[in-house]
Amino acid sequence: MYNFDFEQPASVEAAVAALQAEDTLPLSGGQTLIPSMKQRLNAPAKLVSLTGIDALKGVSVDGGTLTIGAATTHATVAAEATAYPALAALAGGIGDPAVRNRGTIGGSLANNDPSACYPSAVLGTGATVVTNAREIAADDFFDGVFTTALEEGEIITAVKFPIPEKANYQKFEQPASRFALTGVFVAKTADGVRVAVTGASEEGVFRWTEAEEALSANFTPEAVDGLTASADGLISDLHGTPQYRASLIKTLTKRAVAAA
């Protein structure tokens, strides 16, 4: 990879200041960024590591809200987000154990890989993304593949999840990468049901609103029977056609409801 300067600040303020320099990227767990730098697809002049900032780490519960620091690893979320079992299970299924010991929720969300797991939980729960500058509702955060509402130099500090009555994530793995070939996150709250789909769309994570309506009226797998997920705009690659992914969306939604 190309060479770069490495900096590891101890506070959010220092990190934000360091990120003002040109060609500077934040580095969280690095489990996606480092491989892409090896391929020379990314060439920052400086990396600012966020993993030395204690304020960005940890899982806490306050009333009905679970808050996760942005630099909290997947392994920690899997072990400590017991108040939100569906989220803990999702975190425990990302990558592999060694990846989960490095990868972080903030890094995953800022990257917004169209096949990543976390975006579906954030969108499917209606979570709030907290940055050093503001709070962003999940519905406003994801902005297409590898794109988010984050401004240059803005970093995620935490994610706040309203804990749903019931929730479940069903991941159907792409056999090589073990990312989601299609993943469906279903959450039932007092306000209704949200269904978020990852891995399937060329536009990244999205909500399946027809299913949400049907499930808000009747939270059973059968409620989805009469629906068909559209194949329009879904990904076509070695691992599946748009039609296949559309079929998976429906199957996984039913399974998530059954398991929630």
Binding site: P175, A176, S177, D237, L238, H239
Partner: peptide, 16 residues
Amino acid sequence: LLSGSFMDYAMPRAAD
């Protein structure tokens, strides 16, 4: 080559 890394070329793992 569409499957030019372990990201797309599926190697058998222990659970397979």
